[in-house]
Simulated assay, not measured.
Amino acid sequence: MKVLVTGGAGFIGSHVVRALLAEGHEVTVLDNLFTGSLDHIPLSEVHSWVMDIRGTRARREIEFSRFDAIVHLAGQTMVDMSLKDPYYDADENLMGTVNILEAARKSGVGRIVMASTAAVYGDVAQSRLPLVEETPLLPPSFYGFTKMAVEHYLSLYYRNYGLPYVVLRFANVYGERQGDKGEGGVISIFAKRIAKGQGITIFGDGEQTRDFIYAGDVAGGILAALKTENVNTEYNLATQTETSLNQLIHLFAEVAGRDIEPEYADARKGDIRRSMLANGKAKAGLGWEPKVSLKEGLANTYEYFARK
C-alpha cells in the first residue's frame, strides 16, 4: 500500500512510520518540522516532503502522487496554544485538513485515517466514564472544537464525494521521541526532568486523571484502521484505564528507583478534570487492543530520555 503520513516526522508519526515500514508499505512523510524532526524517522526507507499541510505545493504533490491511503496526524495539538491563538489553531487544524481532503478527493485516495482526540468530549460527569463514541461532544477548548469540526468535515466529504474515512480519538498518548507539547506531554516532561534529577510540578491537586496510551499501541490502531472494513465512523484508541497524576508520579518513582516529591501549582485554564475512554468499539470494529502496560511504557519512555 502507498501511504502518506502527514506529521510523520513527529512523535506519533515516527511510531506509525516504523509500523508501516515493518509491514512492507511504501511510505511518504509530509512534515513542516515545526515540532517534528527528520532524525525521528529512517530517511533511507521513506520519501520525505518538508512542507506545510496548508500550502498549495502540498495539495499538488498529493494529487500527483495518488496515494492509496493518507494517515493525517499533522496539526496543532495543544489546548493552551489554542486558547492563546485561536486563529492559528483553526488555520492549522481546519484549513490544513481541508487542503489535505481536497487533494485526497481529487486524486482518488482510498481512505483517510484521521487523528482526533479525547478533548472533543469535554469535561463530563464522572457517571459517564468511560466515554463511549456516542457521547455528546462538548469541547471546552478551541483545540477540541477544531478537531470536532474536522470530524464533521470528514463525514461530509464521505457523504458528498464518497471519500472513505476512519476517525481515531486518541486518549493521552506518550512514548519515545515525544516532545513537551500536546496532550500527553506531561509524561515526556516528567521523564526528562526525572532522568536529569530535576524537580517536577503538577498543575492542580494531582487527582486529575487521564487515560494514558503508549504510542506503539496507537500505531497498531492506525494500521488496523487502514485495513478494517468498518469505516466511516469514529473509534476511541484508549486503555480504558483512569490514572491520576499522583499515581503517575508513584509509577515513575518505581521506574526510576527513587522517591519523587512533586511541587503543586494552580490548575491551568481549559484542562479537563477527568478523562477515560471506552475502547470496546475499537476492539470490535478494528480488531485492536492495547498491549503495553503503563509501567512498561513509562520505563521505555524514561530509558529513552535517560539516554539523551
Score class of each variant (00 low, 15 high):
Val186Phe: 08
Gly75Asp: 03
Gly179Arg: 15
Arg18Ala: 07
Thr241Ser: 03
Pro86Ala: 14
Phe64Asn: 10
Phe170Ile: 10
Phe142Leu: 15
Ser155Trp: 10
Val218Gly: 09
Tyr214Thr: 06
Gly220Asn: 06
Asn300Gln: 15
Tyr214Lys: 08
His72Leu: 02
Val132Gly: 09
Ile12Arg: 01
Glu207Gln: 05
Met78Leu: 13
Asp271Ala: 11
Tyr87Phe: 13
Val79Asp: 14
Gly220Gln: 02
Val255Asp: 08
Pro290Ala: 02
Val255Leu: 07
Val3Tyr: 01
Leu298Val: 03
Gln126Tyr: 10
Ile194Trp: 03
Ala265Trp: 02
His15Ala: 12
Ile200Ala: 04
Glu207Asp: 12
Tyr302Arg: 12
Ala22Thr: 07
Asp91Gly: 08
Thr77Ser: 15
Arg59His: 12
Ala22Lys: 09
Asn246His: 02
Arg210Ile: 06
Ser44Tyr: 14
Glu102Ile: 09
Leu33Trp: 04
Gly122Ser: 09
Arg60Glu: 10
Val150Pro: 01
Thr97Lys: 00
Tyr264Glu: 01
Gln247Phe: 00
Gln208Gly: 14
Ser48Asp: 04
Gly287Glu: 13
Leu286Asn: 02
Glu183Met: 06
Thr56Glu: 14
Gly162Asp: 12
Val98Thr: 15
Lys84Glu: 14
Gly55Val: 11
Gly220Cys: 11
Arg307Asp: 13
Val71Tyr: 06
Gly96Cys: 13
Glu207Leu: 15
Ala267Ile: 13
Arg193Gln: 11
Asp91Glu: 15
Glu176Asn: 06
Met81Ile: 14
Glu133Ser: 08
Leu298Cys: 04
Ala103His: 08
Asp217Met: 01
Asn236Gly: 03
Met51Ile: 06
Leu223Gly: 00
Thr243Tyr: 05
Asp91Lys: 01
